[in-house]
């Protein structure tokens, strides 16, 4: 589905979509697992509600960024009714393209002295 398009056709991603892609970059997860991973990774700065999560999942499945995993975990370890999601190759390329786009933006912010090379939050002194 996504193979006929280029990754940058889908940029910029919404913050929720990018966080979901990042969450699935290292392993497949179910919805609640994605929520917890995003919350922990961002220090609770980003909390996905069920509506935001599954609305994004629906669109990302439609765009071919993620797919439902057919493998189910050991029933003793987890609820068999849960649906697990994983990144597609196209989704991985889109996540990479979005990260590159953000990297470019951050470079411009450094050039324009909006960010420092190091320090808390990278903000310049006096802000």
């Amino acid at each position: 589905m996504g193979e006929s398009r280029e990754p940058w056709d889908l940029l910029p991603l919404t913050p929720a979509a990018l966080h979901i892609l990042l969450s699935l970059a290292d392993e497949e997860r179910h919805g609640y697992g994605i929520m917890r991973e995003v919350e922990e990774r961002t220090g609770s700065k980003m909390r996905l509600g069920p509506g935001t999560l599954y609305g994004s999942v629906k669109r990302m499945l439609g765009d071919g960024l993620i797919e439902e995993s057919e493998e189910r975990p050991d029933p003793e370890l987890d609820d068999q009714r849960r649906r697990y999601y994983r990144l597609t190759d196209f989704g991985r390329r889109v996540a990479g393209a979005e990260a590159g786009r953000l990297e470019d933006l951050v470079s411009i912010a450094y050039e324009k002295k909006l960010l420092r090379e190091s320090g808390a939050h990278g903000l310049p002194e006096g802000t």
């Binding site: 919805g31 609640y32 069920p50 999942v57 629906k58 609820d79 009714r81 849960r82």
Partner: peptide, 9 residues
């Protein structure tokens, strides 16, 4: 499509 998963989440 997603109601049951949202309720579970």
């Amino acid at each position: 499509e997603y109601g049951a998963q949202m309720a579970q989440t």
